Simulated assay, not measured.
Amino acid sequence: MTIELTKSDDTLVKIFKALADPTRIEIIRTLYNKDKEMACGEVGEICAISKSNASYHFRTLREAGLITVRKDAQTRYTKINKAAFAAFLPGFLESL
């Protein structure tokens, strides 16, 4: 599921709810600092979160349109959706 890049109130609410958690901020910070696609398990290890907890946080960020996730065999890879940040929160990533 991806969001459209329009500034509707519903979209903004999803984005701000997704960013209202320290763990999800840490996930975004990790992805931004690495500046590459990463395995979800690798991000979970860096952020010291369990697989089930990481799955919940990745889903929340994905549904808000802040990250993209692709599956290759049994591994899921994620990266920041820079277009969403540029459209809704310009300068946010640089503030991390």
Rank of each mutant, 00 (worst) to 15 (best):
I67L: 05
F85D: 10
V43R: 01
E37M: 11
I80A: 14
H57A: 13
Y77P: 11
A18C: 07
N33T: 07
T6Q: 07
Q74L: 10
T23N: 09
D9W: 13
T75H: 10
M1W: 04
Y77L: 08
E63S: 13
F88T: 06
K36M: 15
F85H: 09
S95I: 03
S8M: 05
V43E: 02
A73E: 08
H57G: 12
P22S: 15
K7H: 07
A73W: 04
M1G: 10
K71S: 12
D9L: 13
F85T: 14
N53C: 12
K14H: 06
K71V: 04
S52P: 04
E26A: 14
R76V: 00
K34R: 15
I25Q: 06
E37K: 09
L66K: 01
S95D: 07
V43C: 05
K7A: 13
T11I: 12
I3W: 06
T23K: 04
T60Y: 02
E4V: 15
K7T: 11
I15F: 04
R24C: 13
S8C: 06
T68W: 12
G91Y: 05
C40F: 05
A18V: 02
V43K: 01
T23V: 15
F58C: 06
A18I: 00
A73V: 06
S8G: 11
K79M: 11
D35W: 03
T60S: 14
R24K: 10
V69L: 06
T78R: 02
D21Q: 05
I28D: 02
N33K: 14
L12R: 13
D10S: 11
N53P: 02
G65C: 10
E4F: 15
F16Q: 08
T30W: 02
R70C: 09
A18R: 00
D10G: 10
F58T: 00
M38C: 13
R70I: 04
D10A: 13
L31D: 03
T11Q: 07
A39F: 04
E63W: 04
V13E: 12
P90I: 14
R59N: 14
L31K: 02
D72Q: 08
A84R: 01
I67E: 00
S52L: 03
S8I: 11
V69P: 05
G44S: 12
E37S: 14
P90K: 06
S95H: 05
Y77S: 09
